[in-house]
Design a binder for these strands. Structure first.
Lengths: 244, 244
DNA sequence: GCAAAAGTGTTCGCTGTACACCCATGG
DNA sequence: CCATGGGTGTACAGCGAACACTTTTGC
């Protein structure tokens, strides 16, 4: 009888120690665009460990949800927004990436319209937008996550009209060009850029113009949601290989 | 009985730290090419639960290793090969994807030269190559993993010379074309295909010919390893948009 | 009227595509 | 000598890149 119990405990111990259980977390690399350059949303940790240091927005996955669900929940809580573009990026699982206890993190890339984010909400979380290439040091392996997210963003945006997710409800072609130039660290010919974007038929021209940045003024456009959703399937060739 | 104790421990652990702990596994979607069509390596489970059913090659991540390391270990043990092409695909974390207890799985795509795989080794694991579109039902969410892997393979192979990983040490252009046609379910113009592949300078022409499939014979080529490694960085436009 | 930015027109070269054609050889 | 698959030649269309040029309007 006693032998039986010992055997059982052995088996249980094996399950719990050798085969190693761990915590599952999600971290979100949240990109935004303020009209000038690509931005990254970071939070200053309000709790130990490493209180005061900067990190990505993240949290733990609950028992009854998937990582996807957890990421959506966390982003929604932070931003007050639903239906935000979000995609699984990569899973980081180095044994000691979290210094406290073993935690595996599934990283997600989110693209949000910076203007939609409620000021109030993200201030509660001590969240701040930083220029993508000029932000404070990050905890754990979060810098690695950001680097990967930038790489994948460049890669995908060259083939898909992804970056439209970052634009406000109405915007001009030169504003969009500014975003592409920020993402690719490269200038594009305005004529060719405009034609290329418009050739996708993903934008609808509005009647009013933005006159803030030029005397002639540039027409506003909005995304044709129907066509945009449909185009997500097909991989278009997107990034103008153009440079000056 | 064992499950009872596990459950109890689970509850205790939850009480002490509200986040739930889970097992971390890896599963490998292993592709091969037999000269005719794309193949998938599956194993018949030799243990409960679900003994006798087919699944991807997989295993648990140990306490001292990352998912990447675990995947490499498992593939190496199965195949006897090192340095095999392997890339993280996606993480699957639906709460009840594993029916026994909560397990999160990081899926990996592997591309291997089918001829290099030691017959002995994979027979020990009851591993069998199946045509990619004609294989037995898989356990858990493994079919979802395979679908995702196929999708990503098509996507990546259109931009990178990935599929060369599946070819034997020496091969002919028509053989390579057969692989592309199998992956894309589409025929390509032989002339254009050959020129396109050769224009990458990734192949070195050998002096001998394969005379099995034609009277004239087709020259063998091998991969120029140096150039190939270098090309992994740059994204080339790869898949001929050609069809007949 | 001039400066400055938006947007159009136009040229040119490269590349993808289609398809005709030549090549080598086993039967 | 012909059928078969390997490989080359070539012509055309379309697209991207470059850049000149026109438009609009505030000052």
């Amino acid at each position: 009888m006693q032998r039986g119990i010992c055997f059982l405990l052995d088996a249980v111990m094996k399950k719990y120690s050798k085969q190693s259980r761990m915590l599952l977390a999600v971290d979100c690399i949240i990109f935004g665009f303020d009209g000038q350059e690509l931005k990254l949303l970071l939070i200053q940790r309000g709790f130990e460990p490493r209180k005061g240091e900067w990190s990505l927005v993240g949290g733990f996955v609950n028992a009854d949800e998937s990582a996807d669900t957890a990421a959506a929940r966390i982003l929604s809580k932070l931003s007050g927004l639903d239906g935000v573009y979000m995609e699984q990026l990569h899973t980081f699982s180095a044994p000691h990436r979290d210094t406290v206890e073993r935690t595996v993190s599934v990283a997600y890339t989110a693209l949000i319209d910076i203007q939609k984010l409620k000021q109030q909400l993200h201030e509660d979380f001590h969240a701040v937008w930083f220029p993508i290439n000029h932000h404070p040091a990050l905890i754990f392996d979060h810098q690695q996550m950001v680097d990967k997210a930038k790489e994948v963003l460049r890669y995908k945006a060259a083939l898909h009209p992804l970056l439209l997710e970052l634009m406000p409800a109405k915007f001009t072609i030169p504003q969009l060009q500014q975003l592409y130039e920020s993402v690719y660290h490269q200038t594009f010919d305005k004529g060719n850029f405009s034609r290329k974007i418009l050739s996708t038929k993903l934008l609808v021209k509005l009647t009013d113009k933005d006159k803030l940045s030029s005397k002639k003024g540039a027409y506003y456009y909005k995304v044709d949601r129907k066509r945009y959703e449909a185009s997500k399937q097909a991989a278009l060739h997107f990034m103008p290989g153009d440079s000056q």
